[in-house]
Structure formats: structure tokens, C-alpha cells
């Protein structure tokens, strides 16, 4: 069963110029819980992800980690707090190698004076990155390969492997099964289960509704920047989920306004 609330947003909003991407969205994530976040294209899912990861500052609203209010001024702070994010796209630097991407921002340095000057322990990182990715269960060729030479699915595997390797509290996966074949997508669902059983809170975003219904404990539906439904997965059927996403099934307003 799920534990305490570890991550929470209250009433966050975010506009891009005249576009309202998030409009007073609130949600709670518990430890050991997989939360599905669904909604049509442009509903605001990735925007919410960027607010949660510290990449974007919301225009309004509050963020709480373990009950303490936070105001991320950069992704660094969220990362240091144990929150890992897989972005929908552009989360990797294509010209860097697999291991350089896995360790980016958290490099291992050589020992001694050269380490003090910032010289990298590349071999050690390559070996470790390889092991991290193997744990994800998606084969990636040599971790000294540049990411631009990988297939879309392999890149996705690298991004997932990195997030899983570093996450300590929360892991946010924005469409992690994109570009993946059926078997590899299955592996990702296993990885999600494993993270959950370690007590992490997982936010899983996907348009593949069977995956969402299979792996999540609770589902939050976003429509036009507003959260229109937040209920245990058991309360949804495939049809009712689709209906809620598209708006053909009317939802009770959560905020009571």
C-alpha cells in the first residue's frame, strides 16, 4: 500500500504568453505509489513535469517535498533533493557518449590533484553506466558510443536508466515508452514496478492507456491545463478513461468552483 505524501503541488499555473498551459493544478504523490498522468496532446502534462523537475518556475501555486514548501530555482535543486526526471524529448545531449549522459552533472573525478582540477574518471564512469543500463534490462551498445549513433529506443533506454540510477525519492517519466518496441516497453513497466517497491514515488505519463491501467495505482486526468479527475486506477475502465480524457464523459469539478 502507498505511504506518506512525498511530493505535492497545490494550485500551480503556468502560461506561455497567451497560452494557459496549467490552470490551478493540484496533485499529491505518495511514497511507493505509481501515479498515472494522462491527457490529450497539449493538455499540459509536460508543462507540469517541468514545474515538478525545477526546469520551469510556475507563475503561481506551491510545491511541497516531504511537507516542506520548495521553490526550485533550477533543476539542480530538485535533482539534489532526489527527484529525477525523464523529459519527453531533448533530455540527452546527442554529442556526448552514453556514459557521459548518464553521469552528466554528477561526474566522477580522478583522485589526487588532477581530480581537484576537474579531470574525469572516464573509465570508471563507463563501467558503472554500463551496469546501470544493464539493470534497466534494455540492451545498449557500448557506453562509450555517442548518443547520436543510437536508435530512438536505445536513447530512451539511456534516459530511463539514468533516471532510475539516480532517483532517491521521486521519479518522473514523461512518455518513457515512446520509441520502444513491445518487449522493451514491457521492461519499462517492470522498471516502474521495481522503483515502486523500493518506496519511490513514480509519476508515469503515457498515451498508451493499457500500460497506464496496468501499472498505476492512481490516475490523474489533465484537460486544457486543469485536473478534471483524480481517482484510484481500479475505478477506471478503458472506456471511462478515454471518455474522461476527451471530455465526452462529464467530470465533477474537483475544486468545487
Amino acid at each position: 500500500m502507498s505511504g506518506d505524501v512525498i511530493y505535492e503541488v497545490k494550485n500551480v499555473s503556468k502560461r506561455y504568453g497567451s497560452v494557459v498551459a496549467l490552470d490551478g493544478a493540484s496533485l499529491k504523490l505518495h511514497a511507493g505509489e505509481v501515479l498515472g498522468l494522462v491527457g490529450d496532446n497539449g493538455a499540459g502534462k509536460s508543462t507540469l513535469v517541468k514545474v515538478l523537475s525545477g526546469a520551469h518556475k510556475p507563475d503561481g501555486g506551491q510545491i511541497f517535498l516531504d511537507g516542506v514548501e520548495q521553490s526550485w530555482s533550477s533543476p539542480r535543486q530538485a535533482l539534489d533533493a532526489g527527484i529525477e526526471t525523464l523529459y519527453q524529448d531533448s533530455g540527452l545531449a546527442p554529442h556526448l557518449t552514453v556514459s557521459q549522459n548518464v553521469f552528466l552533472g554528477r561526474e566522477k573525478l580522478v583522485r589526487g590533484p588532477l581530480g581537484a582540477l576537474g579531470f574525469l574518471a572516464s573509465k570508471a564512469m563507463e563501467t558503472e553506466a554500463h551496469a546501470d543500463l544493464e539493470r534497466v534490462g534494455i540492451a545498449v551498445p557500448s557506453s562509450s558510443r555517442s548518443v547520436s549513433q543510437l536508435s530512438g529506443g536505445q536513447r530512451q533506454a539511456v534516459a530511463i536508466g539514468r533516471a532510475v540510477a539516480w532517483a532517491r525519492k521521486v521519479i518522473i517519466l514523461d512518455e518513457p515508452t515512446n520509441h520502444l518496441g513491445a518487449r522493451q516497453a514491457g521492461e519499462v513497466l517492470h522498471v516502474i514496478q521495481a522503483a515502486k517497491s523500493k518506496g519511490l514515488g513514480v509519476i508515469f505519463i503515457s498515451h498508451t492507456l493499457p500500460h497506464v491501467l496496468e501499472v498505476t495505482d492512481r490516475i490523474v486526468v489533465l484537460r486544457l491545463g486543469k485536473i478534471v479527475k483524480d481517482a484510484p486506477t481500479a475505478e477506471f475502465t478503458s472506456d471511462s478513461l478515454i471518455g474522461t480524457i476527451t471530455g465526452s464523459i462529464q467530470t465533477i469539478k474537483l475544486d468545487g468552483d
Binding site: 533543476p75 539542480r76 535533482l79 523529459y87 533530455g91 545531449a93 549522459n101 552528466l104 552533472g105 554528477r106
Partner: peptide, 8 residues
């Protein structure tokens, strides 16, 4: 973007 997201 990736560099910033990685905490740089």
C-alpha cells in the same frame, strides 16, 4: 536544455 536539466 539537457545540460540545464542535468543540473549544470
Amino acid at each position: 536544455f539537457a545540460a540545464r536539466a542535468a543540473g549544470i
